[in-house]
Simulated scan of single mutants.
Amino acid sequence: MEQEKGQDAPPSTSPTSTPPLLPPPPPSSSYALFLTIMSKRRTWVFLFVLVYAILLVSSWNSLKSILSWYKYQSRSSSPSSCWPALYASVLLGAVFGLLSMVAALAVAVPATLVTWITIVVLLAFFGKPKRTLVLEGRKITIEIASFVFKILLKEGNLVAAVCAVLGYFAFVRKNSGE
C-alpha cells in the first residue's frame, strides 16, 4: 500500500510488454518555424510561381538573345539566305520545348507519385508479403518513371518542332517583308 501512495511500481520486464515511449524532444524554434512555413499551401504556391518566374525570365532572356543574333545575321548576310532563320527557329523550338517539358514535369511528378502510392497500397491490401511488395514497388517505380520520361520527351519534341516550324515561317516572312 505504501508503494502505491508514494511511488509508481517499477515497469514490467516481461518480454511482451512494450517499453514506455519517450516524448520526442521539442524541436528548435527555427526548425519549428521552418516546418510551420513549409506546411502552408501559400508557401508551395509561392515556390511554384517563383520557379516558373525564374524559368520564364531565363527563357525570355534567351529568346531576346536569339532574336538579336538573328537580326545581326540577317543584316550581315544576303537577304536570300535562309540559314540564319533556320538556326534561330531551331533554337527557339529548343527553348520552348525545354520549357514545356519542365512545365509538364511539374504536373507529372505529383500525379506519378499518387499513382505509385495507389498501386503499392492496393498490392498491400491484396496481401502481398513485405519483401514481395518492396520488389514489386521497385519494378513499378522504374516502369512509371520510364513511361513518364518517354511521354515528356515526346511532348517536348512535339512542342519544339511546332515552335521551330512556326518560328521559321515567321522569320522568313519578316525577312521578306523588310
Rank of each mutant, 00 (worst) to 15 (best):
R41N: 12
S68K: 11
V45R: 07
L86K: 13
L91S: 11
Y72R: 13
L86S: 08
R42C: 14
F34P: 00
K40W: 10
A94N: 03
S77Q: 12
Y87P: 00
S68F: 07
L91E: 06
P79T: 14
S76M: 12
W83Q: 12
S78P: 02
R42A: 15
L50K: 05
S28A: 11
S65P: 02
S80N: 08
T36I: 09
L67T: 05
V51H: 03
S76T: 09
S58K: 11
V45I: 14
S74K: 15
L50C: 03
L33I: 07
F34M: 09
S77W: 02
L86T: 07
A53C: 14
L50R: 04
A85P: 02
A53M: 10
F34L: 12
F34N: 07
L92E: 05
L92F: 14
V95W: 00
V45P: 08
V45S: 11
L63F: 01
T43A: 06
K40V: 13
P79I: 14
V49R: 10
S59D: 02
L67R: 15
L47E: 00
M38W: 04
R41F: 10
S68C: 09
L33K: 03
N61I: 04
V90L: 12
W44V: 04
T43C: 05
S76D: 03
A85S: 13
A85Y: 05
W83F: 10
L63E: 00
S62Y: 14
Q73P: 10
W69V: 02
Y72D: 00
S59K: 02
A88N: 03
A85K: 05
T36A: 08
A32P: 00
L56V: 13
V51S: 07
S28Y: 01
W44H: 13
W60S: 11
L55P: 00
R41L: 15
I54D: 01
A53W: 04
R75D: 07
L56I: 09
W69S: 14
Y87H: 08
S78K: 12
L56N: 05
S58A: 13
Y52G: 00
A85H: 05
K64T: 13
V51A: 11
K64F: 06
S39D: 02
Y87G: 07
C82K: 13
T36K: 15
L91H: 08
C82L: 14
A32F: 01
Y87Q: 12
Y31G: 08
I54V: 15
L63I: 04
R75H: 11
S28W: 02
L67N: 14
L91I: 11
T43D: 01
F48R: 08
K71L: 07
L55C: 01
Y52Q: 06
L47S: 05
V49Y: 06
A94S: 05
W69I: 03
I37Y: 09
F46H: 15
Y31V: 04
K64A: 13
S58L: 12
K64P: 00
P84Q: 10
S62H: 07
S78Y: 07
R42W: 11
L33E: 04
L35G: 01
V57C: 05
L92A: 09
F48Q: 08
Y72W: 08
W60V: 04
L86Q: 12
W83D: 09
S76L: 15
W69Q: 14
S74C: 13
L63R: 05
L55R: 01
L35W: 07
A53Q: 05
V90G: 04
S80E: 06
R41Q: 11
R41I: 14
W44A: 15
S39E: 01
T43S: 06
V90N: 02
